[in-house]
Write a protein that binds this DNA or RNA. Structure first.
Length: 572
DNA sequence: GCCGTTTTCGGCCCGACTGTTTTCAGTCG
């Protein structure tokens, strides 16, 4: 049983208890527990086996420990079973519909016996909902639109999609009259790997036409809500976007508030509360006197609770507040620190550009070196290289190096890890390469132990320098394969192998928390774009910000090193 | 149910918008 599976059951308990009308604070404690269980890096199942102290997990107390033990032993617990007996599963589904919370879900169930989204839709179409307390014709129509949206959109979007959309909107609104400052907030600003919506904060005049410009933007498909200080729209892409207009004196408070994360904000607010302060999206105030203690700048919000400014990527309540307090925040890596790119493909396999074209583009990015890593032969569809073609390719790279000044082109390969843990090319061919990246590209559905053995064998026994996209996930498309990363990290450490953070927005693999665990296990990380065309070398920023979310500093990253140090670090 | 910079009981983050309501509940972020 994984931590995520345990967390999902706590989340389910919270939903069900809320529908039943349980004490809201009790419900929240279940949600808090779910959240910190999902974030917990050690295996909770193992902790149970070892009888370790589970109350170390924030938000887990005596009751939580009991429930976790029950869940690990049996897959469920008494509280959950009782709640499930009271609320059919379909009623919980209703919460996914925008505008339907626990109260409405309970109302629909109690009054009309509705137990599914389909049934809710049918009732709305038949006009049966308008007579319920607090409902009317308008809410019926709204509900039908929300159901249609839920069917279409299904939640979250890739970071790159959200980032591009946010940048478009900000660009369009920046020049509107009365707009003084504008910044995207939310998960886009924290560079989370997926985004659920876009938040934009504007400081400006109350009578600025920015709301009209926003709700009237060409990307807007539907206006969900429109007020003087807050509007929400549904974009053509299916994404929701919210805009907040505040006075300049409140810009920092609003930015901090809407950047989140929610868990981080709650922790900051509790901290403020303990100091007799109240933090809102408008200002920090002393509770007693009502005196204002800041709000124009984010720094003022943090300073009011005795902390330095915390970079948005760290604001997940994963220890950043404690680290800030102890003056131990990391000096996070920046895009400017990157000196090379360690995974890219050329026409030799499935890339669109030549060695020279990739190198020329890399020069414009200011890189000192790049590593060319075409596929090996197991990847047939990509025209993967066999031993002979790899050696030819290496000679072509040598020639390109002779012709080009101002950048070093390193010979490499992305060699496939075969199901038995052997590599797809002979050692003598690999020896011609400066750097070897090894990756898994097929047979993803092995049992965890076999997959772990497979990868461990591949990186320990050969001349591998970097493990490419270590979990194989494709965000929103394919789950990571089952693999014991802690064991992989231990083997990699003994073998001097670095882990990749693949910067492609569909991969971001390792993900933030796993990359952080890799660093804590004593490993170096390589941030690579895996570019298949020269313009994809620009995707590096997504990898770097994922690295920032993993608390990585310059010294943790292989390709942030000057060339000589990089070469030295590779020697095994 | 959890927790402690007013500590073992009594709190628990805060405000905007909507749709239904003559003063507010519900939802959302």
């Amino acid at each position: 049983m994984t931590n995520n599976q345990i967390a999902a059951l706590f989340e389910e308990m919270a939903d069900l208890l809320e529908i039943v009308g349980e004490n809201p604070f009790r419900v929240r404690s279940f949600r808090n527990a779910a959240r910190s269980i999902a974030d917990w890096t050690r295996s909770i199942e193992e902790m149970v086996e070892e009888e370790a102290d589970l109350t170390e997990i924030p938000g887990v107390g005596k009751g939580g420990v009991e429930r976790i033990r029950e869940i690990v032993a049996s897959g469920t617990c008494e509280t959950l079973d009782e709640a499930r007996a009271k609320v059919p599963v379909g009623v919980r589904e209703l919460l996914r519909i925008e505008g339907v919370g626990p109260k409405k879900a309970a109302l629909f169930h109690k009054e009309l016996g509705i137990e599914s989204i389909d049934a809710l839709e049918a009732a709305a179409k038949a006009g049966k909902l308008r007579d319920l307390a607090g409902m009317g014709e308008k809410s019926e129509e709204k509900l039908l639109r929300a159901i249609a949206n839920a069917r279409k959109g299904e939640g979250r979007f890739l970071l790159s999609v959200g980032m591009e959309q946010a940048e478009r909107l900000v660009e369009a609104l920046r020049g509107v009259e009365g707009v003084r400052r504008i910044e995207p907030a939310g998960s886009v600003r924290r560079w989370r790997d997926t985004v659920g919506d876009i938040d934009i904060i504007v400081a400006g005049d109350a009578n600025s036409p920015v709301m009209d410009a926003f709700t009237g933007h060409e990307d807007v498909a539907e206006v969900i809500a429109r007020g003087p200080t807050k509007s929400s729209v549904r974009l053509r892409s299916g994404l929701q976007a919210d805009l907040r207009l505040v006075e300049e004196a409140s810009f920092g408070a609003a930015l901090a508030y809407f950047t989140g994360s929610k868990a981080h904000n709650i922790a900051i607010r509790e901290r403020a509360h303990a100091r007799g302060l109240k933090v809102s999206e408008y200002a920090v105030e002393e509770v007693e006197s009502g005196r204002r203690a800041g709000g124009a700048k984010e720094e003022e919000i943090f300073a009011s609770v005795g902390l330095p400014w915390i970079p948005p990527e760290l604001r997940e309540n994963r220890g950043e507040i404690e680290a800030a307090e102890a003056k131990k925040l990391p000096r996070l890596i920046d895009l400017d620190d990157i000196r090379g790119d360690l995974q890219m493909h050329t026409k030799a396999s499935d890339g669109r550009n030549t060695i020279e074209e990739m190198a020329e583009k890399a020069k414009t990015l200011g890189y000192e070196y790049i590593l060319i890593t075409d596929h090996s032969k197991a990847v047939r569809v990509a025209k993967g290289l066999d031993e002979e073609r790899l050696l030819d390719h290496c000679r072509a790279i040598d020639r390109a190096n002779d012709r080009l000044d101002g950048i070093r082109i390193l010979k490499g390969v992305e060699v496939d890890i075969l199901p038995d843990g052997s590599l797809d090319l002979r050692d003598d061919a690999l020896a011609a390469c400066d750097v070897v990246v090894a990756s898994v590209h097929f047979r993803f559905s092995m049992p965890e132990e076999e997959m772990t053995d497979r990868i461990a064998r591949a990186i320990s026994g050969h001349r591998v320098h970097i493990l490419g996209h270590p979990t194989g996930r494709l965000i929103l498309q394919r789950e990571p394969y089952a693999v014991d990363l802690a064991r992989i990290f231990a083997v990699a450490r003994d073998s001097g192998v670095a882990m990749e953070i693949n910067a492609h927005p569909e991969r971001l693999d390792l993900r933030d928390v796993d990359a952080r665990a890799a660093k804590e296990a004593g490993l170096r990380l390589a941030i690579s774009t895996d570019a298949h065309a020269r313009e994809q070398l620009d995707l590096m920023r997504f990898g770097v910000h994922t690295a920032r979310r993993a608390w990585l500093e310059k010294k943790d990253v292989l390709n942030a090193m000057p060339f000589d140090a990089f070469r030295k670090a590779l020697r095994k």
